[in-house]
Design a protein around this nucleic acid. Structure first.
Length: 919
RNA sequence: AGGCGGAUAGCUCAGUUGGGAGAGCGCUGCCCUUACAAGGCAGGGGUCACAGGUUCGAUCCCUGUUCCGCCUACCA
């Protein structure tokens, strides 16, 4: 029988393109509720539809694919459901930029044509990431690809919105929200990133109305907001100020006076001057303080965060000043205001001050607390069951450490602002009767972008429903205007685990695969997404959306820096796949996925695993070159030592890879595979069986060839989830049954393979060969040179083992073995090394320099002496012998005995070498 | 400010009932030995951040300190 000859190096590119195609054509990834097996389902965290694959996706998706392929091979009814989200703000920003380049804008196009334009962009670029995912080898059921703005998913969004509204869990109200003056939309609290900056703390004097010679000094980081002040607060128990409570101060640069109020919540007596201005329309704390004291709100910025002349006028600001600062951004207006205050002697101090500012997570613009009517989800009633589900273990977060993070956040959760003032997304299903809300609907008709805005003011009556109402229940009017806002993208992705399975329809998929099994995601969206899925799943499905949440690390560059395009330190997974192969990338990411630690990814690591792939390829190449000849499935226990040993090791590797995967320890599983394949299978097993394979007459040949095929085929199945392409290719080169490794069984431990006595025997072999090789180097014998060496072990059973191993020792030691007891060894011209009861002797030929060998022996001696002293010291300690467990004491004594014996033998060896040097 | 995580070989990281410190990469030396130079063999290299405590015994458990990350936050 002749076997095909493989190329000398593994060509990942050619192999990957071929199998990716076949897998998808054959439909191996297609899931069905009617398939057999216990369901196992993962829904993919939907990436941005117009994005492209970055290395964070590569990690996230590789881990999911490992789980999915593993479970599929285990015979589970597996569904990995792929899809993308519409990424409202991000996608709209991209298309707006395109329009800007063309000299157009979304306003010039109008809402309908603008949305059309985004759909076009989605159609053009939406396949990119999907193609890239396929290239990564992801075994998703691509026929079930979902998108958050699909008809079905939009139906789910509508259903959820209307039902939550009916139950009073969605409401509209005018609140201070985080506003991005560049994206011109509201953001939720968690869409704001905080950044520490060096700011200034300004001390400004407010004159008392009753007595202008007396002044109250307030401290602020934002002097420009003083125009919007409604009061000054002091601590009610602060003896410096509390007698002033109830009096009024003149607000600088305006014609207004404002009250001094006592507020123990807002005021920290220790900070600044102990007096703080209250600006309810522009600060979250002040907003609440304003509520407490019934203070008016004076908005002085417009939606672009420019100083608004109308607002300033209403706030009573001096007209000359308004003329100077109107329509300026804060950065330009602040120096002018500073100057005006200085001119009047009211700015007494400016200190450096560290502070935090909020930035838009999409565009990094400084966000502004902005007073506006928005839609909110009343979150507490939804959060409570979601806290419980994690507390009582119905949902497990892995690593466990993040559980408290989740619980802490959920317990302190605030209402969720879900309306966005953009056009791309699910438009809110709320309508307003024009007749009833005449004064509350403000439709701009100007030519500029900002003057075209449609604003529905606070207090307008909204009619929420799945479709536009036909007549107004109040006035029977028929003229309606729809709320222009769209929903936060996360509102639709919160429904992902059930909306993708067909909800609100009761589909067989929903029945089979919900709750899903595992969610794999990064920490950065634990709150954005995971928490919200749990809330929505419990609310609308009455059950958790998934059992396990596995949180993986963030991928950083080799220096530990966050990857970003602007820093230019991004590792492009596609480039890496091109250069080193997809399997190498996948294996690298898996092997570095240690819990609770970020991944610092360096290309050298990937290169190392490319080499690993090549090593496996060459092991196969070797096997195929040596398969000619009969094979016989001998009972494992009747096979030769190398075969029995490697089966035993393979068996243990199967056990550990399986249990590590069950524990989500991808790193451990990958390392177990690496260690076994490279350092046991290749380094030792293949070397051990070479003489047998190359001797056609060997009686052990049929068993060895059988073991060779059996082990490599099993190993490929074991490795397949990690390196799908390489293993598929090799599997097809080997004798096999079936059409693809994708649908083969995952290896399970085989009791008949366990052979602990072979493991022990191997340890002796490895130990012996190690000493022989060391001796060779010490004596400068070239690797190929045949030598005579002596081996003896102190332990009778080990000595018997040496006899069993004689042929293997001779082969790997490259020489002739003599197993006589040490007392029979030649007296002179011999280098002896001793460790752990094993003595190795090599004949010293001619005029080699023995100093190297002597150094080595001396070093060994001093290390041993140190250890002996340490052990003796411990055993002399009566407290140790009285209190330590007996097995520990016995172990110490054993080690000491062995070391003393080794030491005396080594001493005689040293004498011998010295004698040779002396002569 | 609070919470969490981390600090172990030159680098990246493993290391649980507390008892002789490990891997990968890199480095040094030798070798193109018929699967693989993307390889083989051998080797050097560590007060386990610091200071206390518990213990017969601490890289591991406890307390504190320093440094580095991340998350949360209403100190104007």
């Amino acid at each position: 029988m002749s076997t095909p000859q493989l190329d000398k190096t593994y060509d990942a590119k050619a192999v990957e393109a071929r199998w990716s195609e076949v897998w998808n054509q054959q439909g191996y990834f297609h899931a069905s509720p009617t398939h057999t097996g216990q369901p196992y389902c993962i829904v993919i965290p939907p990436p941005n539809v117009t994005g492209s694959l970055h290395v964070g996706h590569a990690l996230n998706h590789s881990l999911q694919d490992i789980l999915i392929r593993w479970r599929r091979m285990q015979g589970r009814n597996v569904l990995w459901l792929p899809g993308t989200d519409h990424a409202g703000i991000a996608t709209q920003n991209v298309v707006e930029k395109q329009l800007m380049a063309e000299g157009a804008s979304r306003e010039s196009l109008g809402r309908e044509r603008f949305i059309e334009r985004i759909w076009q962009w989605k159609a053009a670029s939406g396949d990119t990431i999907i193609r890239q995912q396929k290239r990564l080898g992801e075994s998703c059921d691509w026929n079930r690809l979902r998108f958050t703005m699909d008809e079905g998913l939009s139906k789910a969004v509508l259903e959820v919105f209307v039902r939550l509204h009916e139950e009073g869990l969605i409401y509209r109200g005018e609140r201070l929200i985080n506003w991005c003056p560049r994206c011109l939309t509201a953001l939720s609290d968690i869409e704001v990133e905080h950044e520490d900056i060096k700011g200034k703390l300004y001390s400004i004097e407010y004159e008392l109305e009753q007595d202008p010679t007396m002044r109250l000094t307030v401290a602020t980081t934002r002097p420009e907001t003083l125009f919007g002040d409604s009061a000054v607060a002091v601590h009610p128990e602060d003896p410096r100020y509390n007698r002033l409570i109830g009096q009024r101060v003149r607000l600088p640069l305006t014609n207004r006076t404002i009250p001094i109020v006592g507020d123990a919540i807002l005021v920290d007596r220790e900070f600044g001057t102990g007096a703080v201005k209250i600006t309810p329309a522009h600060d979250f704390n002040d907003f609440e303080a304003g509520e407490r004291h019934g203070l008016p709100r004076h908005p002085i910025f417009n939606h672009q965060a420019l100083l608004d002349p109308e607002g300033l006028k209403t706030a009573g600001v001096e007209q000359e000043l308004i003329d100077v600062i109107a329509a300026l951004p804060v950065t330009k207006a602040r120096p002018k205001i500073e100057q005006a205050l200085k001119d009047r002697g009211l700015l007494t101090k400016v200190d450096d001050h560290k502070m935090a500012i909020g930035k838009c997570y999409r565009c990094k613009t400084v966000v502004e607390p902005y007073l506006s009517p928005q839609w909110f989800v009343k979150i507490k009633p939804l959060a409570e069951p979601a806290i419980k589900a994690v507390e009582d273990g119905r949902i497990r977060i892995i690593p466990e450490g993040w559980t408290n993070n989740y619980l802490g956040w959920m317990r302190d959760i605030k209402d969720w602002c879900i309306s966005r003032q953009i056009w791309w997304g699910h438009q809110i299903p709320a309508w307003y009767c024009r007749a009833c809300n005449k004064d509350l609907i403000v439709e701009g008709t100007g030519a500029t972008a900002s003057s075209q805005r449609l604003t529905i003011l606070q207090g307008a009556t909204a009619i929420v429903g799945k479709a536009a109402p036909s007549t107004c229940p109040t006035c029977s009017g028929t003229d309606f205007i729809r709320d222009p806002d769209v929903l936060d993208t996360w509102f639709s992705s919160a429904l992902w685990p059930f909306s993708t399975l067909g909800w609100p329809d009761q589909t067989p998929e929903l029945k089979a695969y919900y709750p899903t099994s595992t969610l794999v995601t990064g920490l950065d969206i634990l709150f954005f997404w995971v928490a919200r899925m749990i809330m929505m799943g419990l609310k609308f499905m009455g059950d958790v959306p998934f059992r396990d949440v596995y949180i993986h690390a963030l991928v950083r560059d080799a220096e530990g820096q966050k990857m970003s395009k602007s820093k230019g330190n991004v590792i492009d997974p596609l480039h890496v796949m091109e250069q080193f192969g997809t399997d190498a990338l996948r294996f690298t990411l898996a092997s570095m996925a240690s819990p609770g630690r970020d991944i610092k990814l360096a290309e050298e690591r990937i290169e190392g695993y490319r080499n690993f792939a090549n090593k496996i390829w060459n092991a196969t190449r070797f096997s195929l070159m040596n398969l000619d000849g009969p094979r016989e499935a001998v009972q494992p226990s009747n096979r030769a030592f190398p075969d029995r040993w490697i089966l035993s090791r393979l068996n243990q590797t199967i056990q550990s890879v399986t249990s590590e995967l069950e524990a989500y320890r991808f790193d451990h599983a990958a390392n177990a595979l690496y260690q076994f394949i490279w350092h046991e299978y290749c380094d030792w097993y293949l070397e051990l069986i070479k003489p047998t394979l190359q001797n056609q007459a060997s009686l052990e040949g049929p068993g060895a060839r059988q073991t060779l095929v059996e082990t490599i085929e099993t190993t490929m199945r074991l490795l397949h989830p990690f390196m799908p392409y390489l293993t598929e290719e090799i599997w097809h080169q080997l004798p096999h049954q079936g059409e693809s490794i994708v649908v083969q069984n995952y290896p399970i431990p085989n009791i008949a393979w366990t052979a602990p006595e072979m493991d022990q025997r191997f340890a002796l072999l490895e130990h012996s060969i190690g000493l022989v090789r060391t001796s060779r180097v010490l004596l400068n014998y070239p690797p190929g040179q045949q030598i005579t060496f002596y081996l003896a072990h102190d332990d009778r059973r080990r000595q018997d083992d040496l006899g069993e191993l004689r042929n293997y020792l001779a082969h790997l030691g490259r020489g002739t073995v003599d197993l006589a007891p040490t007392t029979h060894w030649p007296a002179g011209k011999l280098l002896r090394l001793v460790t752990e009861g094993l003595s190795v002797g090599i004949a010293v030929a001619g005029d080699v320099d023995l100093n190297k060998a002597l150094d080595r022996i001396t070093k060994e001696q001093s290390e041993q002496t140190k250890e002996i002293e340490r052990l003796e010291g411990k055993l002399r300690n009566q407290e140790f012998t009285a209190k330590a467990p007996p097995e520990v004491i016995a172990d110490h004594q054993n080690r000491l005995t062995n070391l003393r014996r080794d030491q005396s033998m080594l001493a005689s060896s040293a004498q011998q070498v010295q004698a040779m040097l002396g002569s």
